[in-house]
Design a protein around this nucleic acid. Structure first.
Lengths: 137, 137
DNA sequence: CTTGACACCGTATCATGATACGGAGGGTAA
DNA sequence: TTACCCTCCGTATCATGATACGGTGTCAAG
């Protein structure tokens, strides 16, 4: 458990110094204690572990609020994996819903792009018609 | 061209009164003139048209900044539809990129959910392992 | 023993898209 | 005429996730 300054921890965890301070303010990580000798705080050990956890959970699509919850679960005594599986399922469904919404948008855009002559006056433009609610359906 | 109060226009355009004022502040719509007699401003006519345009463009995934640009294009004299098609293509690609990112996330989550025993200690949890960077790949 | 690089920490700003609040004023209906 | 609802407008707040700034302090090398 080497001790790390905030900028070293930031490099290790792949984020910026200001981001770490931001996570402190949000309560995702505790402000690590200053060493007995005073001076710079130690962002190694558990703090670095939490920063990496946050970074890993973000990659799976979890928000900071959700990550705060995951961190509580992870560090609870007698923690089991039911809760993690449940959170993952909820997140999967959330992402699935977002994909569906975006896919609908994409297919509408695809149809409009195909229907649009691509030149000439706006009166013939399917895209403008769609925006203005003049459905050509 | 009936005249409308702000709350009537909000109902027509499917948004809130405060949202209309927000769009005014953003410069997406001009503050409509007060009638000669004074009193409430008239949000009908062109203003309502713009509000509906904004609402329609939002449904296709355009941001407010992009919509501001679309409104300029739409109301330019001699406006053609090349520019609209180009904007639509860019937006389609943007959405496509977002779908790809989310799809990757979803498939990672799917694999992790399947690999997770769903009960028992966290040591066996594939989800926690993934978050913590202990790739089981 | 000075200079330079960090750390520390409070506060401000950004982007994005709204929503809420509060007080002044106007128009209508009982 | 007195409620009552709505408009108007400036300002504040929310959610989400950061990034930036400025002043002060500390440490280590030259």
């Amino acid at each position: 458990m080497q001790s790390l300054t905030i900028s070293q921890a930031a490099r290790e965890a792949g984020m910026g110094v200001e981001t770490i301070r931001f996570y402190e303010r949000k309560g995702l990580i505790a402000q690590p204690p200053r060493p007995i000798s005073g001076g710079a705080r130690d962002y190694g050990g558990n703090t670095l572990w939490r920063l990496k956890f946050i970074s890993g959970a973000k990659k799976l699509g979890f928000s900071l609020a959700e990550i705060a919850d995951l961190l509580v679960l992870r560090t609870a005594p007698n923690a089991g994996c039911e809760a993690f599986q449940a959170r993952a399922r909820v997140k999967r469904d959330d992402i699935q819903g977002r994909i569906e919404g975006l896919t609908r948008m994409r297919s509408v855009l695809d149809k409009l792009i195909e229907a649009c002559p691509g030149r000439g006056e706006i009166r013939q433009c399917s895209i403008v018609d769609a925006i203005e609610g003049k459905e050509t359906d």
